[in-house]
Amino acid sequence: MTLLALSCTLIFVFITMFVSFWKRLGLEKSIAIGSIRAAVQLLAIGYVLQYVFQTEHVAFIILIIAIMTVVATWNASRRGAGLKGVFWRIALTIGVMEAFMILFLIGLNLIEPTPQYIIPLSGMTIGNAMIVSGLFTTSIKREVEASRGEIETLLSLGASGTQAMQGPMKRAVKFSMIPTIDSLKTVGLVQLPGMMTGMIIAGADPVEAVRYQLLILFSHTGSAAMTSMILSMLYQKLFFTPDARLRKIERS
């Protein structure tokens, strides 16, 4: 794709800004900043990846994955404002998920152990875990606030903290899984996934592209379920005082 052709796609950004201006939505500045940031970030990562792919040095792979994990954790943990210790819990979950997924895929020879495979797949795995972590954190906070009566009723009946939190945790896990399950059900009918589309446009065999997409979809579904399950275990004590009273969540 030539730079001129790429520049032409800015028309879509201008259309969006025009609609915002016309309808007085006040989004022009955000759209402009967002578009510039997206372009700079993607171009930068393009050059970085080009260099890393050429050198194939393992330290660069680890560094990039570490940066991805920290940024994803920071973003998802903002949903947990008012809860202490959310950042480290999400970081641990994303780190464990990433290590498990990549080692699993390499171990089964599903991908080659090269930066070209590891970095994009890590990006997708970490991004997916970030979305699930953010949704789970938002949902469990809301559930605990809305279900204080239910939780304290169970505690009053002699339930342990884990037993009392079972209902809210179950509902939060289900909520965080909704986008993953929905995309699994509608993929190919409503949307052609980005990675598969990219491979086809780049000239790959569509069936080969589908195989990789299925790999991604299934691994994402597994990682989404595991992310929310791990978080539900790690979050258990966040909502209770050391002497097992239900904590009041500080307003952020």
Binding site: E152, L155, S156, G158, A159, A244, R245
Partner: peptide, 18 residues
């Protein structure tokens, strides 16, 4: 605490159905 609450049980003003 769970053992204590099994012996000293609190019933709230507004009943919560599980």
């Amino acid at each position: 605490p769970a053992k204590w609450r099994s012996q000293v049980c609190y019933v709230a003003q507004h009943a919560v159905m599980l």
